[in-house]
């Protein structure tokens, strides 16, 4: 027999008393009605302690569960790995800076060398250096690069990509010059790219490849600073860094370039070498403070 529910319908008022009477007969209807009527006056025995206060006292002792969404553990694990990686990367980050009048030679793990001149900075990461030799640089320095993975130098004025070679970077003020002594380097600056070979140089003012007419070797590096067609203010910035002096001009000549080399160990000689060709002389005002005046004065 199919499940019947007419009594459920009757109790909910969907079937009237008369309809039910017809279905089940008067006697049965009356006993159903008596049950329902009796129940209508009944209620559940009262609760002894229904107040919220007694529950609140116990709630204070309950420790609330923390919300742990599905991916929490994964997120925690990922965070640990990330923090560890970042930490490892940070630990291996190397920054070498030379102060005024301070030279440094950096031996890199692949046999490459950096000759850092005063007031210059290089920055690289020991961990990633094995994979890609990327170096951030500022100031003046010579790179002697061993063969191996691509070697890249990035400065604010340009980038240099090399294979095995020796080259000099001059990145001061807004001036940027790369001189190649050995091998080949690729220089990028603004929207230009130049490939220069040994004994060639390029700067971001002329944007032309020019021959380098001087020799570079480690002995010369230690006693002379060498320039070729370099803005005087850039040379002066180097000079100030090398000797830890301040140089001011009574009348700064515009758009003049210096070619040649000056001693990095004898200040008197260096000042003469740099300024005489421009009919200028350096006058000592006080210790480490020089003023550049015209020769005629």
């Amino acid at each position: 027999m199919e499940d019947q529910k007419y009594l459920a319908d009757w109790m909910e008022g969907k079937i009237t008393d008369e309809e039910l009477k017809e279905m089940v007969g008067e006697a049965t209807f009356l006993s159903y009605a008596q049950i329902i009527k009796t129940l209508d006056n009944w209620s559940v025995p009262e609760r002894k302690d229904p107040n919220f206060e007694q529950l609140a006292a116990k709630m204070a002792l309950v420790k609330k569960e923390k919300k742990t969404p599905k991916y929490t553990w994964f997120a925690i694990a990922a965070s640990i790995v990330l923090i560890f990686s970042v930490g490892l990367y940070q630990i291996n980050s190397v920054k070498i800076t030379t102060e005024i009048a301070n030279y440094k030679t950096i031996d890199l793990m692949d046999g490459s060398k950096i000759y850092l001149e005063p007031n210059s900075t290089v920055h690289y990461n020991k961990l990633t250096y094995r994979l890609y030799r990327n170096i951030e640089a500022e100031g003046t320095m010579v790179f002697k690069v061993s063969k191996g993975a691509p070697f890249k130098v990035a400065t604010k004025n340009g980038t240099i990509a090399v294979l095995g070679t020796t080259f000099k970077v001059l990145d001061r003020l807004n001036f940027f010059k790369v001189s190649c002594f050995e091998g080949k380097v690729k220089v990028g600056m603004q929207n230009n790219a130049f490939t220069i070979k040994a004994s060639e140089e390029v700067d971001n003012v002329s944007k032309e490849i020019k021959p380098v007419e001087y020799e570079w070797n480690e002995d010369i590096q230690s006693t002379y600073a060498t320039y070729q067609h370099t803005p005087l203010e850039v040379v002066v910035a180097d000079l100030e860094a090398i000797y830890a002096i301040d140089i001011s001009f009574s009348n700064m000549p515009e758009k003049v370039y210096f070619s040649g080399r000056y001693s990095t160990v004898n200040l008197e000689e260096a000042l003469l070498t740099v300024f005489t060709p421009f009919h200028l002389k350096a006058k000592k005002i006080q210790d480490n403070n020089y003023k550049i005046e015209s020769l005629e004065e």
């Binding site: 529910k5 009594l7 459920a8 049950i35």
Partner: peptide, 20 residues
């Protein structure tokens, strides 16, 4: 709701027959 209705019906039938 179907289950509820079924239970309601059966409960009332049971109660009447048992009291009888």
């Amino acid at each position: 709701v179907k289950t509820i209705e079924k239970r309601m019906h059966n409960a009332l039938v049971y109660l009447r027959t048992n009291i009888k």
